[in-house]
Computed example of a mutant assay.
Amino acid sequence: MANREDMMKWIVECLKARGGSGWPKEIAKDLWDHYESEIRASGDLVYSWQYDARWAAQKLRDTGVLKPVYGRTDRPWELA
């Protein structure tokens, strides 16, 4: 079953496929397009996966994998 930590790996994979940068809704679409079956098979994750993806992105920022956005919503997610 997939979890939030899996989302962190998936986000990095999606960003790499996009050249290192992408808007949250683009990444959400990529996650669904590539990992729908894992999300659906993971119980309640199917109801919270978009929230969990944002949580995962924040964890990736906290660990320096993603560039910080400093609370702004007008910046894409970018690999550091």
Score class of each variant (00 low, 15 high):
residue 1 M to S: 14
residue 1 M to T: 13
residue 2 A to P: 06
residue 3 N to Y: 07
residue 3 N to C: 12
residue 4 R to Y: 05
residue 4 R to A: 06
residue 5 E to T: 10
residue 5 E to Q: 13
residue 6 D to W: 12
residue 6 D to H: 15
residue 7 M to V: 02
residue 8 M to F: 02
residue 9 K to L: 08
residue 10 W to Q: 03
residue 10 W to D: 03
residue 11 I to G: 00
residue 12 V to D: 04
residue 12 V to Q: 06
residue 13 E to G: 04
residue 13 E to R: 08
residue 14 C to F: 00
residue 14 C to G: 02
residue 14 C to A: 15
residue 14 C to P: 01
residue 16 K to V: 12
residue 20 G to Q: 05
residue 21 S to G: 05
residue 22 G to D: 02
residue 23 W to L: 01
residue 25 K to T: 13
residue 25 K to W: 11
residue 25 K to H: 14
residue 25 K to P: 06
residue 25 K to F: 13
residue 26 E to V: 10
residue 26 E to Q: 14
residue 26 E to S: 14
residue 27 I to N: 02
residue 27 I to E: 02
residue 29 K to I: 07
residue 29 K to Y: 10
residue 30 D to N: 10
residue 31 L to D: 01
residue 31 L to A: 05
residue 31 L to F: 04
residue 34 H to I: 01
residue 34 H to F: 07
residue 35 Y to M: 05
residue 36 E to C: 12
residue 37 S to G: 07
residue 39 I to G: 05
residue 39 I to E: 04
residue 39 I to W: 06
residue 40 R to P: 06
residue 40 R to A: 13
residue 41 A to E: 14
residue 42 S to K: 08
residue 42 S to C: 11
residue 42 S to M: 10
residue 45 L to G: 03
residue 46 V to C: 08
residue 46 V to D: 08
residue 47 Y to C: 08
residue 47 Y to D: 14
residue 49 W to T: 02
residue 49 W to H: 07
residue 49 W to S: 04
residue 50 Q to Y: 08
residue 50 Q to K: 15
residue 51 Y to D: 13
residue 52 D to W: 05
residue 53 A to Y: 04
residue 53 A to F: 06
residue 54 R to Q: 12
residue 55 W to G: 00
residue 56 A to N: 04
residue 56 A to Y: 00
residue 57 A to R: 00
residue 57 A to K: 00
residue 57 A to P: 00
residue 57 A to T: 00
residue 58 Q to R: 15
residue 59 K to D: 06
residue 59 K to Q: 13
residue 60 L to R: 03
residue 60 L to M: 12
residue 61 R to T: 03
residue 62 D to L: 13
residue 62 D to R: 13
residue 62 D to Q: 15
residue 62 D to C: 10
residue 62 D to K: 14
residue 63 T to S: 15
residue 63 T to Y: 03
residue 63 T to H: 04
residue 64 G to K: 09
residue 64 G to D: 11
residue 65 V to S: 03
residue 65 V to H: 02
residue 68 P to K: 02
residue 68 P to T: 02
residue 70 Y to H: 15
residue 71 G to R: 04
residue 71 G to E: 05
residue 72 R to A: 11
residue 72 R to S: 08
residue 73 T to D: 09
residue 73 T to W: 05
residue 74 D to L: 09
residue 74 D to M: 11
residue 74 D to C: 10
residue 75 R to V: 04
residue 75 R to W: 03
residue 76 P to F: 12
residue 77 W to L: 10
residue 77 W to S: 00
residue 77 W to A: 00
residue 78 E to K: 08
residue 79 L to V: 04
residue 79 L to C: 09
residue 80 A to T: 10
